[in-house]
Design a protein around this nucleic acid. Structure first.
Length: 278
DNA sequence: CGGCCAACCTGTGCGC
DNA sequence: TGCGCACAGGTTGGCC
């Protein structure tokens, strides 16, 4: 589930619960996920009040009034659940690896079957130099992402356009699904050398990236499979994919009689229409 | 530094 | 019903 739109959806869902609340209990339920949990995690957060929740790339950031910032990354299979506010919470489940309880009888639960996620700690003052955040490229929905900056980031790159857009230092927050979707919308082949775009193509790509992300956020994130969002509702953007997961199905372009192809690039599946995308 | 691959994990769906 | 295999939304460390 967790590319930029899904993380954005999670942040919007947990912000009303967490902001202004005090964390009364913080419980790591195993040693860590991809990396060990910070040793001072509970000590740093317990008894502190949450100031704000926001997102950077695919990271959810929870800033405390003390200036400490909890960084959550959902990896491939991470999900965030809010239990309560209420008098009773459901039983913790398999793969519920990290839990934070608030003084308003709500509980945030991080569930991550594959444990590719990350729980990290930084602070207001040092977040810019934190290894996870330091080398991230511009936010695709922010002012720092335009045709000129993208052209500069792609210039001289020999790798494919697909690989370049998955590189979080080029643009931050895209993953396999939305790269496929944006390239389809921009009519650009995932196999194009990243440095070969002309200004018109670059502009089309910028617009397409923004468009697919905005639409996905509006739909509440794609939330593949049976993932229930923190709001308890399922996202519906997954039903709106044009190419992702559609190998062998007809291209949706009105006049196109071709079918969607799947190739493997950098170990990831790329779905595209070889007739429409060049 | 750029580019590529393996590794990190569990779950699911498919063919046999 | 069971087994084995391919594949899955991401990142990173090591190697050339």
């Amino acid at each position: 589930m967790p590319e930029l739109p899904e993380v954005e959806t999670v942040c919007r869902g947990i912000a009303p619960i967490l902001e202004g609340a005090t964390l009364i209990k913080v419980t790591p339920r195993r040693a860590g996920l991809r990396v060990p949990f910070p040793p001072d995690l509970s000590l740093t957060l317990t008894g502190k009040r949450v100031k704000t929740v926001w997102r950077r790339a695919k990271y959810a950031l929870i800033e405390m009034e003390t200036g400490s910032i909890l960084i959550l990354h959902l990896g491939m299979s991470g999900r965030v659940r809010i239990d309560g506010p209420g008098t009773s919470w459901p039983e913790l489940q398999k793969h519920d690896h990290f839990v934070m309880e608030t003084d308003s009888s709500a509980r945030l639960v991080l569930n991550d079957a594959r444990r590719f996620g990350m729980v990290l700690l930084t602070s207001r003052d040092s977040m810019d130099s934190h290894p996870a955040l330091a080398s991230l490229g511009p936010e695709p929905l922010g002012n720092g992402f335009d045709a000129l900056t993208l052209a500069a980031a792609l210039k001289g790159r020999k790798s494919s356009l697909k690989a370049a857009l998955l590189d979080q230092s080029v643009v931050a927050g895209l993953g396999n699904i939305y790269v496929c979707e944006a390239l389809y919308l921009a009519r650009l082949s995932p196999t194009r050398p990243a440095g070969s775009l002309d200004p018109d193509e670059t502009e089309r790509l910028v617009r397409s990236v923004r468009h697919v992300l905005v639409k996905a956020i509006e739909a509440g994130g794609s939330s593949l499979r049976d993932h229930a969002q923190v709001t308890g509702e399922l996202g519906y953007f997954q039903h709106s994919f044009c190419v992702y997961g559609r190998e062998g199905e007809p291209c949706l372009q009105e006049a196109c009689k071709s079918t969607i192809k799947r190739i493997v690039q950098a170990g990831r599946s790329s779905f595209y229409c070889s007739h429409c995308q060049h």
